[in-house]
Design a protein around this nucleic acid. Structure first.
Length: 284
DNA sequence: ATTAGGG
DNA sequence: CCCTAAT
């Protein structure tokens, strides 16, 4: 007989998301110098970020997994990136601009400069500032991801430590435009996922790019959940696909077997516990 | 660790 | 979603 498998903690490591500017050929912001207001010194630099793209998402999932679980896995990765708290970084010519007090002009982000190589990066917060009210934009625009070039892969490993509490990482990721290449090798690892009969296990690895230099030391991952204990989880309304998956699972298993429902339909969805599923069913 | 319900 | 008593 087999005992029910215990829930495995999976780590989807969010690593990075890069902001790319796309416009015609790659970079996508337009810089214009105008000076509507003042004198000769007042130019406005217009930077338009059309979309944020996740450089490369590397997911390893068994062939017998369902398309739905694949989608949820991807969603989980993306969500955890956002959920973990993000900070914006600016890189010009591959160099990270650290001094927040510089004016754009001092940082050379201004009219007359070559702004073809500016990058906006999204970095995970080191866990300290988790604002309770972090919202997850349900409609973040990630299109165009396939246009990116792989940069570096980060490997996510299962922390030896047990709890999520211990990981605050500054996983930062960078993105660099296609032109920037780094010569880092890519490594990836898998997580132990428990697979069961038909249950699908999946591991997701998120790549990170380490661009130019120092700024990014990549670190494992923080389970995306903030280490802060008593933190109330952010509210994440069930999406239609989730509701459908829940309904289908309950149709098969019935009520009262939430752990199985979780395994059947949400096995790779870390943020939905069987208690959550039970609660959702209650409100349906 | 799970289930079942109230908070 | 959280908290918990009861399994």
């Amino acid at each position: 007989m087999f005992k029910r498998q215990k829930p495995v903690r999976r780590h989807f490591t969010p690593s990075s998301a890069k902001g790319i500017l796309t416009e015609a050929s790659g970079a996508s912001f337009s810089v214009e110098g105008q000076n509507p207001l003042c004198g000769s010194e007042d130019y406005n630099v217009k930077l338009r970020i059309k979309s944020f793209t996740i450089p490369e998402l590397f997911i390893e999932i068994p062939e017998n997994a369902t398309v739905g679980s694949l989608k949820r896995t991807v969603m989980d990765v993306v969500t955890s990136i956002i959920e973990s708290g993000l900070r914006v970084g600016v890189l010009l010519q591959g160099k990270s601009i650290q001094d927040d007090n510089k004016t754009l002009r001092q940082a050379r982000i201004c009219h007359g400069e070559n702004l073809e190589n500016i990058d906006f990066t999204l970095e995970c917060e080191a866990g300290q500032n988790s604002s309770p009210g972090v919202r997850i934009p349900e409609e973040m625009d990630f299109h165009g991801a396939d246009a990116m070039k792989p940069l570096a892969m980060v490997k996510c490993e299962e922390p030896l430590s047990e709890t999520k509490a211990g990981y605050n990482s500054q996983q930062r990721v960078q993105a660099s435009p296609n032109r920037v290449q780094s010569e880092h090798g890519s490594v990836h690892s898998r997580f132990e996922a428990t697979a069961h009969e038909a249950s699908a296990s999946s591991q997701a690895i998120v790549p990170v790019a380490s661009p130019s230099s120092e700024a990014l030391a990549i670190v494992p991952v923080c389970k995306s959940k903030r280490p802060v204990i008593g933190q109330r989880r952010i509210r994440r309304p069930f999406s239609l696909p989730e509701v459908e998956a829940l309904v289908e699972a309950v149709e098969q298993l019935g009520t009262g077997r939430w752990r199985d429902v979780k395994m059947l339909a949400f096995d790779n969805t870390d943020h939905r516990t069987y208690v959550d599923l039970k609660d959702k069913w209650k409100t349906l």
